[in-house]
């Protein structure tokens, strides 16, 4: 056979081989997972209002103490499901980390009416037009962010956080200083 077709077939074979390898390596990965580029980066600044008292909360005043941000909405069923776990943890670990809830894509009225019971150890913040949520790279609700005492975002949990043990593990990790060179 002349050289042309042989070269062409060879190229096709090589390309298909690479393709099959790429496909095979795709198994086991979740295609719906969204990259989390803020991991290890400093948490963006924010100024939000508390739902219960109306006072302002800023990032600056939270420095020096690890905290947990939980994004939720009144129209989100799984958010209601995870609330008991978070509320319990907020009480139990209140000396290790402060817990805040941030309302996503919702109005103040609905957040108040449909919201979880007002809990001083777990204040809810209202985020107008969800600007802060987008700043933090939120992809939906519920999501829970873990931020250490230096104000660096360590980790986030996507989906309802129902397992108390899972939460405890992540809180413990929050107390450790971040590994050197972790925040690229």
């Amino acid at each position: 056979m002349t050289r042309g077709p042989v070269v062409a077939l060879g190229c096709v074979a090589a390309a298909v081989g690479a393709l099959l390898f790429a496909f095979a390596s795709g198994f086991g990965r979740d295609p719906h997972e969204v990259p989390f580029a803020l991991k290890g980066k400093p948490a963006p600044d924010f100024t939000l209002t508390r739902l219960d008292t109306g006072e302002k909360v800023t990032l600056a005043e939270l420095r020096g103490h690890p905290f947990v941000l939980n994004f939720w909405a009144s129209w989100c069923g799984p958010c209601q499901l995870e609330h008991p776990t978070l509320a319990r943890a907020a009480q139990r670990y209140q000396h290790d980390a402060r817990f805040f809830g941030v309302v996503f894509e919702d109005t103040t009225e609905d957040a108040r009416v449909f919201a979880r019971p007002m809990d001083p150890s777990f204040p809810q913040l209202i985020d107008p037009q969800s600007r802060m949520a987008v700043d933090y790279g939120v992809t939906g609700v519920p999501e829970t962010y873990f931020i250490d005492a230096q104000g660096v975002i360590r980790d986030k949990y996507v989906g309802p956080l129902l397992d108390g043990q899972e939460l405890a593990t992540r809180l413990a990790a929050l107390q450790q200083p971040s590994a050197p060179g972790a925040s690229r």
């Binding site: 719906h32 894509e105 037009q129 969800s130 949520a133 987008v134 939120v138 992809t139 939906g140 609700v141």
Partner: peptide, 23 residues
């Protein structure tokens, strides 16, 4: 759009897309 399958935030009607368009 982070919670859709390949749609842009201009096309999607989901909550995350709306939040990002506002931003």
């Amino acid at each position: 759009c982070p919670m859709c399958q390949g749609l842009s935030i201009a096309d999607s009607g989901s909550s995350a897309a709306r939040a990002q368009m506002d931003r």
